[in-house]
Amino acid sequence: MTLPMYVSPEQLMKDRADYARKGIARGRSVLVLSYRTGIALVAENPSTTLHKVSELYDRMAFAAVGKYNEFENLRVAGIRYADLRGYSYDRSDVTARGLANAYAQTLGTIFTQESKPYEVEIAVAQVGQRPEDDQIFRLTYDGSVTDEPGFVAMGGASEELTGQLRERFTPGSSTLKEALALAMAVLGGSAEERQLDAGQLEVAVLDRRRPRRAFRRLRGPLLESLLDQADPTADVPTVDDARPGPHDTLTGEAPERPERSDGREHTNPQTQHPGEEHQDPQDQHGPGAGGGSTEGQET
């Protein structure tokens, strides 16, 4: 007698969910926090090359926990989605909501139809002009999507972390330094008391004061001084490192601005709004710079 065993749909879905949840719980946590001049993405990740947070588009970033190969696949798909949308319509038509929907549909279909669900949890963040305009979407392995006000905690102990953040975090009014201090305390205290340092954290920001590409990774002396409570540095500069090369990371190693005689904004067919054009990152001052170190620069 080899009757196929009957498994109820409820049981099937529960098994899949348990499987995915177990995979996610093994990983370390990621926090996304909206602060006064931007959105901070903080991951416990000792690797400097295999990232958990990443740039998606001008004002959008991606954060993930779980299986690297699976969320890396989703990250690339998100960049393709955003670039295709921006190329075929306009850069301003790329929204986090649209991408979150596409991710939700994708994860939902994979959860029910593929032989194994993705063991990932991801967040899509979009920085606005003001903290109230920030959007953070959280997506889980089964395709559920939630619009989180001000902060998201993902990973193994996400419920506990969310509870702590709800008690101790006021989105939108904290400085970056306060947000990072809290993130460090919450992440360090999740399992057993541990003191985290800059080397174990992967930190990036979406800086709302920047004109076009708002995403910058934080590393080196700048990150150390932001995490050091005795240090007065409370926010990231809106000017990139002077060293030539890729400017996706702020290290604070060479804060001086190189000598530049004069400059006009770029003529860029991609950014069709005069005044909001892509400026050279070296020349960025950010409209209405709040607490940054942007004073005393000539245009």
């Binding site: 690339v76 393709r80 989605y81 075929s88 929907n101 596409a102 994708t106």
Partner: peptide, 21 residues
């Protein structure tokens, strides 16, 4: 038709390999 509005991302979005847009 190039960009899905509310459906899952097509397989070409999730295909691995190319870094070229």
């Amino acid at each position: 038709g190039a960009v899905p509005d509310s459906r899952r991302l097509p397989a070409s979005f999730l295909a691995t390999g190319s870094s070229s847009f």
